[in-house]
Computed example of a mutant assay.
Amino acid sequence: MVDAQSEDAAAGFNPLRPKLMRVAYRMLGCVADAEDIVQEAFIRWIRTERGQVREPEAFLRSIVTRLCLDQLKSARRQRETYIGPWLPDPVVEEEEDEDVTLPLMLALERLSPLERAAFLLHDVFGLSFEEVAATVQRDPAACRQLASRARTHVREARPRFQVDKQFGLEFSKAFFAASRSGDMKALGAMLAAEVSIHADGGGKRSAAMEPVIGYDAVMKVHEYLAALFIKGGSTLVRAGFVNGLPGFVTREADGELQTTALEIEDGKISAIYIMRNPDKLRHLH
Rank of each mutant, 00 (worst) to 15 (best):
A58Y: 07
D97A: 13
Q166I: 11
Q78D: 13
E130M: 10
L106W: 00
R50P: 02
A199R: 04
M27K: 08
N14H: 12
E95Q: 15
K231E: 13
V221F: 09
E40R: 10
L169S: 10
I213F: 09
N243A: 04
C30L: 14
S6I: 12
I46F: 04
E49P: 11
L236R: 08
S196A: 15
L102V: 08
A178N: 05
D33K: 15
P18S: 06
P56N: 09
E252I: 08
H122Y: 01
L60P: 00
A134R: 14
P15M: 05
D279S: 15
R158L: 11
G240S: 02
A4N: 08
A11D: 11
T101Y: 03
Q39E: 15
G214A: 04
L102M: 08
R282V: 15
V38M: 08
A75Y: 12
L121T: 09
G203F: 11
A9N: 04
E80M: 14
F119N: 04
P88F: 08
E109T: 12
R47C: 09
A10C: 03
A58E: 13
L281N: 00
R238L: 06
A174Q: 13
E49F: 03
A141N: 11
M105P: 00
R149V: 04
A239C: 10
D89V: 02
M1L: 10
T135F: 04
D8V: 11
Y215T: 03
G255E: 06
V64T: 04
